[in-house]
Design a protein around this nucleic acid. Structure first.
Length: 352
DNA sequence: AATCCACAGGAAGATTAGGATA
DNA sequence: TATCCTAATCTTCCTGTGGATT
C-alpha cells in the first residue's frame, strides 16, 4: 500500500482466510492508518467499503460506489432511479474527474461475484489522474480465485494475502488480552483460557469463537452467581454455542429441507430402520399431510447430503452385501431442540 | 465368478424465481 | 410495468458400488 504515498494506485489485493481470523478488522485498521497518514501528507484518497453480504446485486454495488465517490465541485449527485448501465456511465464520469486514489474494498466477495463488473471497474482509467481504482477483495473461499476468468485473475490476484489460522498458543494470547480488559483479576483460571483456546483451535483457529466462548462461559458462571468460573462453564458454553448454531441453521432452512429433516427425526425415533427408503416414505406422507409438493427421491438424497454437510445429521453407509446397502442416520444434533424449531415453521405446525 | 440389493451420485434437460433492461 | 435473461432448483435417466449369497 505504500505506493499511495507516492501518489500511485497500489496493486489490487486479494485477502483470503477462514472466518474469525480478522480479515475485515485487519483491512479496516490498515486503511484507517493509511487514511490518517494520507491526510497528513495531503494526498487525496477515497476508500469505499462494500459488504457483499448486505449488498449483493451488481446494481446496488454500483449504486453504493457511486454514492461514495466525490462529485466534481460538490455538484449534487444523481443516484436514485438509474439503471445499471447508467450507473456504469456515471461511475466512469466520477472516476474520470477524481484526482485522488480510489480504493474499493469488497468484503465477503464470494457472496456477490460478478467478474464482469469487477473487470469493468478495474479498467476505468481516470482521465484527470491516470490512475485505475484499486480493489481489495476479502473472502473465505479460496476457490473464488479460480472462478475468475484468467485475465482478471492475474490482475486481481497479483497480491494475495493468505491469513493462516491461529494456533492454540496464539489463541491463548488473544484470550488473555480479552480477559485482562473484561474480567476482574484472578477470576479466570488458566484451565479456562486453555480450554477456550483448544475448542477454538478445533474450529479452524477461529478467534471470534474463542472470544464468544469466553463471554458465554462468563455469562454462565455469572448466572450461577459464582465468583470464579471453571472448566465446566466452558464446556456448557461450547454446548450452548453449538446448539445456537444448529437452531439458527434449522430456522433458515428451506421448507423442503425442514420436511426432510422432520422425516429423519420421526424415523429415527420410531422402531423402524432408518433407511433411505423409510425416510423417503415418511417424507412423502408428511408432504401430503401439509400439502406441499413431494420431491423425487433423487432430490431428497441431495437435501440429506446437505443436512449432513451442515452437521445437523450424521450418517454412515452400511454395506450388507446381498441385502444391499443402507444409509443409517447415527445422530441428530440436539434432536429435541431441532424438533421444536421445526414445529415453529408454520408449514409444519399442522402435524404437530 | 456371477448376481443382486438398496442406495449414491453424475449428466443433461426442464422449470422457475427474481434481477436486469427497456 | 412488461419482457427478457440468468442462475438456482428440480426431474429424468442412468451408471456405479461392496460384499453376502448363489
Amino acid at each position: 500500500m505504500k505506493d499511495i504515498f507516492s501518489g500511485v494506485s497500489p496493486n489490487n489485493i486479494f485477502i483470503y482466510g477462514k472466518p474469525g481470523l480478522g480479515k475485515t478488522v485487519l483491512t479496516k485498521w490498515v486503511l484507517e492508518e493509511i487514511k490518517k497518514e494520507a491526510e497528513n501528507r495531503n494526498i487525496e484518497l477515497c476508500i469505499i467499503n462494500v459488504n457483499c453480504e448486505e449488498i449483493k446485486t451488481e446494481h446496488s454495488i454500483l449504486q453504493r460506489i457511486v454514492q461514495e465517490l466525490p462529485t466534481p465541485n460538490n455538484e449534487p449527485r444523481k443516484v436514485i432511479g438509474n439503471s445499471t448501465s447508467k450507473h456504469n456511465e456515471y461511475l466512469k464520469y466520477l472516476v474520470n474527474d477524481y484526482k485522488g486514489i480510489i480504493i474499493i474494498v469488497f468484503d465477503e466477495m464470494d457472496k456477490a461475484i460478478n467478474p464482469e463488473m469487477i473487470n469493468r471497474i478495474i479498467r476505468i482509467q481516470s482521465i484527470s489522474s491516470g490512475q485505475f481504482p484499486t480493489i481489495i477483495g476479502i473472502t473465505n473461499d479460496l476457490e473464488l480465485r479460480d472462478k475468475f476468468p484468467p485475465h482478471l485473475k492475474s490482475t486481481l490476484c497479483e497480491n494475495s494475502l493468505i491469513i493462516n489460522p491461529y494456533d492454540a498458543e496464539q489463541l491463548i494470547d488473544i484470550i488473555k488480552a480479552r480477559v485482562k480488559i473484561t474480567f476482574k483479576p484472578n477470576v479466570v483460571p488458566h484451565v479456562v483460557v486453555h480450554l477456550c483456546a483448544a475448542y477454538a483451535a478445533q474450529e479452524h483457529g477461529d478467534a471470534r469463537r474463542a472470544i464468544d466462548l469466553l463471554r458465554v462461559s462468563g455469562e454462565i458462571a455469572e448466572s450461577k452467581a459464582s465468583t470464579v468460573f471453571d472448566e465446566q462453564d466452558v464446556r456448557d458454553a461450547h454446548d450452548k454455542l453449538e446448539l445456537d448454531r444448529v437452531i439458527e441453521v434449522v430456522k433458515t432452512l428451506p421448507t423442503q429441507s425442514k420436511t426432510v429433516l422432520l422425516a429423519c427425526i420421526y424415523v429415527y425415533n420410531s422402531p423402524k430402520e432408518n433407511t433411505m427408503n423409510n425416510i423417503y416414505f415418511m417424507y412423502s406422507i408428511i408432504c401430503k399431510a401439509i400439502e406441499i409438493d413431494t420431491l423425487t427421491q433423487r432430490r431428497v438424497t441431495d437435501l440429506l447430503a446437505e443436512l449432513n454437510q451442515l452437521k445437523i445429521i450424521d450418517g454412515i453407509n452400511v454395506y450388507q452385501g446381498r441385502y444391499g446397502r443402507k444409509k443409517i442416520i447415527t445422530n441428530i444434533t440436539s434432536k429435541e431442540q431441532t424438533l421444536k424449531t421445526l414445529y415453529h415453521d408454520y408449514h409444519l405446525t399442522t402435524i404437530e
